[in-house]
Design a protein around this nucleic acid. Structure first.
Lengths: 329, 329
DNA sequence: GCTGTTTTTGGTAGCGGTAACAATAGAATC
DNA sequence: GATTCTATTGTTACCGCTACCAAAAACAGC
């Protein structure tokens, strides 16, 4: 930058102004400086700028696992809005481990990110303390926690799960099995289970621990769920798969066994992946506002960072989901 | 940091050493400083550190589209290796637009990333020039370009496509249709098409433009491909879908029409997504080293950055793929 | 004990920008 | 025409850390 200043015969301050507050500089200077900038291909050093102004245009995002297609829509929403305001996204994965998450938070704070997005809502006390101390705005994304760190943009896993279970109950199914991903360090799974249980109670159905399963992600896991459920409780008439592509795996297993769906077993899923609409029978599911979550998260974060909108501190935005009834129930 | 130094009764230089080169400091000092660091919860400022040392621990990654599950495995491989060495990943999406890519490259260079990973292999001349001028190591990932910017870690889209087409030919299929994603600004698609054409020639089959299609991503597009192909050329006996989940969409369409696969139409796909193994009939495909690409990319980049391994400049690593024969062909 | 060498610690000057204030010049006011 | 104001540009200090070299302390050899 010094180089640009010398060649243009102005002070570095003027160069800085041309690049950051062009309005405060006369037409003539602006052109003179910009020409030199182009000539020598000058690239401003953001590190220096950020350090000096103690601002930054970087947002940190921590997801449990990068290779989970569920999050990609949210990341896209985030990324698109942030990009428009010139912000960058740093992404890291915690592997569903709160200690790992804490370490990543520390690193991000060291990098002086100006905001943080966390997809998990379970944190170590130290992590919470560090964030509080840093004073930067944070958005939690994966669920609506009882004690938010700061802001929340999400749908309610509990309510969504409740809604689908009620739906199955109203359709007349009486022995409704429930499968989710492991709930250790995953309060999304925990809330889904509780939503299911609350609905059963409301429906006057007895909970039966034999048909409540936890498993890993994947099609194979979905198939296995069907096998386990019908082996222990043959009279089961519906299966609600509240996790990643489990329902598709379950459907394939039913097809393999030649079972009519929903005749022998009704199937419901939790996330509206494209696939569920195209399989036969098409699978009932919940349409979750994945992209919107990212978009709103970015917006609310930017308001806090750029406009200092302190009144947004602690906001909880509960985005609505939609229940989609299809052939499988 | 000044605060820590004062409280521990040492110079800032000693604090800096304790944090970065603990070996060069006496046991006693180390403990004294670390205790104070813990006491006041001191977080080093990486921005300042990076500026001062003109090094950084950030790698920039540009993908065409974030919500493409194909890349997530590669990103995971990258992320895991980088994390182990304390590097961070900044991710941005170019939307398949080279101009957008150039702008993102400029931003990343301004942020002084210490390495760049590009999933596209089509760049504007200005982008190439900026990268060259910056001198930072770059890895291209999505394909093996004719004129690499620097290093390349990929499989060959051309060879993979060629291999699958040859496979179909050897199985006796004579009228092999080909569907890929739009090839505008997507040299992966272009190379796949050329591989297909090269194989046809080798097999002594006449190319037929009526059964070479380009379409968008998604299951619906796959279904549509089947419809278009058989309408214009009913005697087609195989369909090679060289793009995202097109094959699954095509399979569903065949099932809907009650066509035996491969009896009426053989189906081959391009990427070994879990789904292809679990549908019925299971679909032949290519297993591509997605995760490995990320891992190797990170490794080669780190060698250049940390060990200054200049002999790696310009390396082209052609990772092997595997053809998986299943029921659909 | 003294000199030469090695290890450990400290002082100082930037890294490349920006904030805050000072200075200058031209416009506006009376 | 003198004074006040406003718009534009420059000066200086510092953001928080590390490179580089100097100083001090510890160790060795004779």
């Amino acid at each position: 930058m010094r180089d640009v200043a010398v060649r243009a015969g102005v002070s570095t301050m003027t160069v800085s102004r041309v690049l950051n507050e062009p309005g405060k500089v006369s037409e003539e200077m602006r052109e003179r400086v910009l020409r030199v900038v182009r000539e020598i291909g000058y690239l401003p050093n953001h590190l220096a700028g950020n350090l000096s102004s103690s601002r930054s245009t970087t947002i940190g995002l921590i997801v449990p696992s990068i290779d989970n297609s569920i999050y990609t829509q949210t990341v896209k929403g985030l990324s698109e809005v942030l990009k428009r305001s010139g912000f960058q996204l740093m992404i890291a994965e915690s592997g569903y481990d709160p200690n790992e998450e804490e370490e990543l938070i520390t690193i991000f704070l060291s990098q002086r990110v100006s905001g943080l997005v966390l997809h998990s809502t379970e944190h170590t006390p130290q992590a919470a303390e560090k964030i509080r101390k840093s004073g930067i705005p944070v958005v939690e994304n994966g669920n609506i926690p009882e004690e938010p760190l700061d802001m929340v943009v999400s749908f309610s896993n509990h309510d969504a799960s409740y809604a689908m279970t009620m739906h199955l109950g109203r359709l007349g199914y009486r022995k409704i099995a429930f499968a989710s991903l492991y709930s250790v360090h995953n309060d999304r799974s925990k809330d889904r289970l509780q939503g299911y249980q609350a609905a059963l109670k409301q429906l006057g159905l007895d909970p039966d621990p034999r048909i409540v399963l936890e498993t890993e992600r994947g099609l194979a896991a979905g198939a296995e769920v069907v096998a386990r459920v019908v082996q222990s409780v043959p009279e089961v008439d519906a299966l609600f798969c509240a996790g990643d592509v489990l329902a598709v795996g379950a459907l394939f297993e039913c097809q393999k066994r030649g079972w009519p769906v929903p005749g022998r077993l009704a199937l419901a899923s939790f996330d509206d992946v494209d696939l569920l609409r195209h399989v036969s029978p098409s699978v009932s599911t919940l349409r979750l506002p994945r992209y919107d979550i990212g978009e709103r998260t970015a917006r609310i974060l930017l308001s806090r960072i750029m406009d200092g909108a302190e009144h947004l501190r602690g906001s909880v935005i509960d985005l609505k989901f939609e229940l989609i009834q299809r052939e499988s129930t």
